[in-house]
Nucleic acid binder design. Structure first.
Length: 384
DNA sequence: TCTCAAACGATCTGAAAATC
DNA sequence: GATTTTCAGATCGTTTGAGA
């Protein structure tokens, strides 16, 4: 059975960041600086992960293909990598050395991309050996086609938010029933205007919020008296980061409609609906990647480590860990971090708790001397 | 001025410690 | 032993910075 740590795309991302980092060998350097970090992805086409070179302001979008597929799957991947050039400055494809019929697919794709008509395209190709990758062999990933020239054109759809944002789906308070209601409203108002979220969905939802008609995770009416414009954003961000609505129009996507359907059939507070939310957050929302990092972090600590003595130092230490590996964006200059949650991680543990992804003792997910105990069997069954 | 993505600031809760 | 106090941890409403 697959384990959490079989997240090969995440492992590749780590290897690339490590190689490009201050202590890396720089085999994957090409035109990039060492000041490079992982950032978030959203919209369509959707890359598996994305890096940002802060010194050059280059974005670099990656398509990862798992092992054991037919040749055509990998050929498709090369096409996907090309489409990423619409929003990212550079892109890359990561494929296994061989397809399932023992054909040297990586070599074939590399040769294809070096054809004269394609030779200047800013697309890199990496090849990996699955078993060596899983065993943590640093030489398991190799760059077989590199980006040698700077691209002069700015991608037509280069997004401003690419200059920041965590790689996992950002989340605030949105509860299961609130998520359902937002999906329902997006369906009701589908296509009514170019931005139905602003024109219909949010105004309706805000009214319900003000009248105490929407509930928190605990089923209590939510009390919001001001700051509606900020809440407008905080409710919207997870919806489009998870690909449930279109960021621009607010219309439901196919995935959003599928989730709504499950909520309609089984009820918004049902286990089935909750499981589906959890699955989407883990996979599309890339919280699985984050949980794996958290596991790596807490496993690296000694039982009596300072970081394991309080939840505050635990999450502070986790942020330092992510930062060291380039897995979180640069902190915004000028912002102080004196709040009681001085970390990029704020509501994520609560969210995992509500989705029953953690094993909770006495209502507490943080366990002194250990960290967070995840419900691994539930997570593996959700991601199938 | 609006949007996105935080950071700030405060309350609530329950268990442990202190006090009676 | 019972009651009160304290405080860490969990929760979430509010405000802010940066960029378009």
């Amino acid at each position: 059975m697959a384990t959490l740590h079989d997240n090969l795309a995440g492992i590749c991302c780590m290897q690339i960041l490590k190689d490009l980092g201050p202590s890396g060998k720089g085999d994957f350097q090409q035109i990039f600086s060492k000041n490079i970090r992982r950032i978030g992805t959203s919209g369509w086409p959707l890359a598996d992960f994305q890096l940002l070179d802060y010194d050059n302001n280059y974005t670099w979008a990656f398509e990862f293909k798992p092992p054991g597929q037919q040749k055509r799957e990998y050929v498709t991947g090369l096409g996907q990598a090309y489409t990423y050039l619409n929003f990212a400055d550079y892109s890359a494809l990561i494929v296994p050395v061989m397809s399932n019929d023992r054909f040297s697919i990586a070599d074939y794709l590399s040769k294809t991309s070096k054809l004269e008509v394609l030779s200047n395209s800013p697309v890199a190709i990496f090849a990996y050996d699955e078993s060596r990758l899983l065993s943590g062999d640093p030489g398991s990933l190799s760059l077989i086609r590199s980006i040698n020239n700077k691209r002069s054109e700015i991608p037509p759809n280069k997004k401003s938010e690419d200059s920041g944002g965590v790689f996992w789906t950002w989340w605030r308070d949105t509860s299961d029933t609130e998520l359902y209601r937002l999906l329902e409203l997006s369906d009701i108002h589908r296509g009514k205007s170019p931005d139905i979220y602003t024109d219909y969905v949010w105004p309706d939802f805000q009214k319900e919020l003000a009248n105490g008609k929407v509930c928190t995770w605990e089923g209590e009416p939510r009390r919001v008296n001001s700051g509606f414009s900020q809440h407008k954003q905080n409710y919207k961000i997870p919806l489009f980061r998870l690909g449930l609505i279109e960021q621009d129009s607010g219309d439901l996507t196919e995935e959003g409609y599928d989730l709504l359907k499950i909520g309609k059939i089984f009820k918004p507070n049902s286990a089935v609906f909750l499981d589906e939310i959890a699955r989407i957050i883990l996979t599309r929302g890339q919280h699985l990647d984050l949980i794996i990092q958290l596991e790596n972090y807490q496993n690296s600590l000694a039982r009596d480590a300072e970081e394991l003595q309080s939840s505050k130092s635990f999450f502070g230490g986790f942020e330092t860990w992510l930062d060291k590996q380039g897995l979180i964006p640069q902190r915004k200059p000028g912002r102080v971090t004196t709040g009681n949650k001085n970390s990029f991680i704020r509501d994520e543990p609560k969210l995992w708790n509500k989705l029953h992804l953690t094993n909770v003792k006495n209502d507490q997910y943080f366990e002194r001397g250990y960290g967070i105990k995840f419900n691994i069997s539930r997570i593996t069954s959700l991601i199938r």
